[in-house]
Design a protein around this nucleic acid. Structure first.
Lengths: 114, 114
DNA sequence: TTTATATATTACCATATGGCAATACACCCT
DNA sequence: AGGGTGTATTGCCATATGGTAATATATAAA
């Protein structure tokens, strides 16, 4: 039950939902996510932690960067099922579409400062 | 997006999740739900409203009683998909199992006062 | 060793949420 | 009309949540 609640709560925030939709496209570091959404760096970090603790997202260090990606949902049935649904949900949502376009132009290399 | 958030938020509370699992078994009025969970009547009403606004639950008046039941999720894809998943989720959860047993003994007729 | 950069943590604030008691409303039944 | 019962609403409180600025930590480069 607790795990289900964590998954649901994790996806109860627009910012976190956007992050999941973005990470479905590609692995991203915190500063890239920050450039896509307009939230402060600590806020991004906090949200990512919530997603991580719900078993939806995992991180991998690469030198100075921490790359985040979606898990395959092996943490729980809930995580797996919901991630599967998330891959179809919001595909036609205008806000998400715009976000995905924006994503193409974002790379850690063209971010002067993270 | 807003609708998705509402669905997720609605299922971010253990009490509401329990209500959904119960309503999957049978239609129930507020006082029956109250007898099953140990929460005050206003709290139950408030939770049901949240579930209703997420498109997960609907109500039907029968004289003095208001019977609540699950919708078929026609409000949104999210509601439909999540309700479908909810029918399999938590089926082995001990707390839910106990609740379902308790449910058999609960009828508005053997509740002295609602 | 110093400096710079990417991320995480902390401290703090404003708002949202979940809980209840008290009250209001709606619908019977005399 | 009046009383009884089931549900909804209101008002209030404690805690949770989402946000930021400031700071700490970690790694790379000079």
């Amino acid at each position: 039950m607790k795990k289900l609640i964590k998954v649901m709560k994790a996806l109860s925030d627009p910012g976190r939902v956007k992050m999941v939709k973005m990470l479905a496209v590609k692995e991203m570091c915190v500063c890239e996510i920050q450039a896509a959404l307009e939230l402060s760096q600590p806020t991004i970090s906090k949200h990512l932690k919530v997603l991580e603790e719900a078993g939806l997202v995992a991180s991998r260090k690469d030198k100075l960067w921490v790359n985040y990606n979606l898990t395959d949902g092996d943490d729980s049935t809930y995580a797996r099922d919901v991630l599967e649904k998330m891959s179809t949900w919001l595909e036609k949502d205008p806000e998400i579409k715009t976000l995905k376009k924006k994503l193409k132009k974002i790379s850690r290399d063209n971010l002067k400062k993270c």
